[in-house]
């Protein structure tokens, strides 16, 4: 097994204050969980991310905003190397998680993805029971103990605020749940393997307002324990849920800082135009 994912003992339980310094879209929170340096990404010959450099703080919500096609999804999918499964795509540069570059040759991608969970735009439950969906990650991780499985399933569903709605029908198909419930199921499924970082790519864009509110409340609660990166094209959502916001445009990071600053007092004209809805 790899040494990559051994907890390096970073004091992530201690919440550090975020420093306010911003240099050209690059911010330096005191405790960065994810450090991105000069990261480029290519689909075949097309370069879609240009020299991204940013630090993502521990146990906060970082929102990625920007017009469609600007590379937000590509960027989050680079953080758990999900893009590896796309033929002819590759990244260059450095993305460090807890001090280890995940693009190093020695990285165990399977372990990485267990530590960096992901929730997708469209909920994608397996056509199995609710229980089996949540237990899947544990089972492939080698957990067979029935009791341990049930306990984790319950804990994950509680964390995803879904337990009360499904506790009496854990053996029913997950496909029978509503859209919002399915998305929370997918969050619970990601939480079940006990990740430390949670990547969410427009997790609420296919949901109605009530379900969206539930997801946003959930994100708010989860940041107590998880480092969250959320892609959204909904500016209000970014403003509501995130501590820090990064604005992307045409594959470049235009501005990054405290969410309040980005929305109330942005440095760049482009950011201001975007957040005030003058284009988008």
């Amino acid at each position: 097994m790899t040494t990559f994912l051994i907890d390096t003992g970073t004091p992530r339980r201690i919440k550090a204050p975020v420093m306010q310094t911003q240099i050209n879209g690059m911010a330096s929170p005191a405790e960065a969980r994810i450090r991105v340096r000069h990261f480029d990404f290519f689909y075949a010959d097309a370069k879609v991310l240009h020299g991204i450099t940013m630090d993502i703080p521990d146990r906060q919500v970082t929102a990625l905003i920007g017009p469609s096609g600007c590379g937000k999804s590509t960027f989050v999918r680079s953080m758990n190397r999900m893009n590896d499964i796309i033929p002819d795509a590759h990244g260059e540069g450095v993305i460090e998680i807890d001090g280890r570059n995940i693009y190093d040759g020695g990285t165990d991608v399977v372990e990485l993805r267990r530590r960096v969970g992901m929730v997708f735009q469209k909920s994608n439950p397996f056509p199995k029971s609710i229980f089996e969906n949540i237990a899947y990650g544990l089972k492939i991780g080698g957990v067979r103990n029935r009791r341990q499985l049930s306990e984790t399933v319950e804990k994950s569903l509680r964390r995803a605020a879904l337990w009360d709605e499904v506790k009496d029908r854990l053996n029913d198909s997950a496909m029978a749940l509503s859209g919002g419930q399915q998305q929370r199921l997918c969050i619970a499924r990601a939480l079940a393997v006990d990740p430390e970082i949670l990547l969410m790519d427009e997790p609420a864009s296919a949901l109605d307002p009530i379900a969206t509110t539930k997801i946003e409340e959930l994100i708010w609660e989860l940041k107590e324990n998880y480092t969250i990166v959320i892609v959204t094209h909904n500016m209000q959502q970014a403003a509501r849920v995130s501590d820090r916001t990064a604005f992307f445009m045409l594959g470049r990071l235009v501005e990054y800082g405290e969410t309040n600053t980005i929305f109330m007092n942005p440095r760049e004209k482009m950011t201001e135009d975007y957040v005030t809805g003058r284009f988008g």
Binding site: I85, V110, M118, F120, F126, I140, R189
Partner: peptide, 15 residues
């Protein structure tokens, strides 16, 4: 089979 199914599996640490 939708790509999303495979992605769901990979994202949970599937080989």
């Amino acid at each position: 089979v939708p790509m999303a199914q495979r992605e769901a599996a990979y994202a949970l640490g599937s080989t």
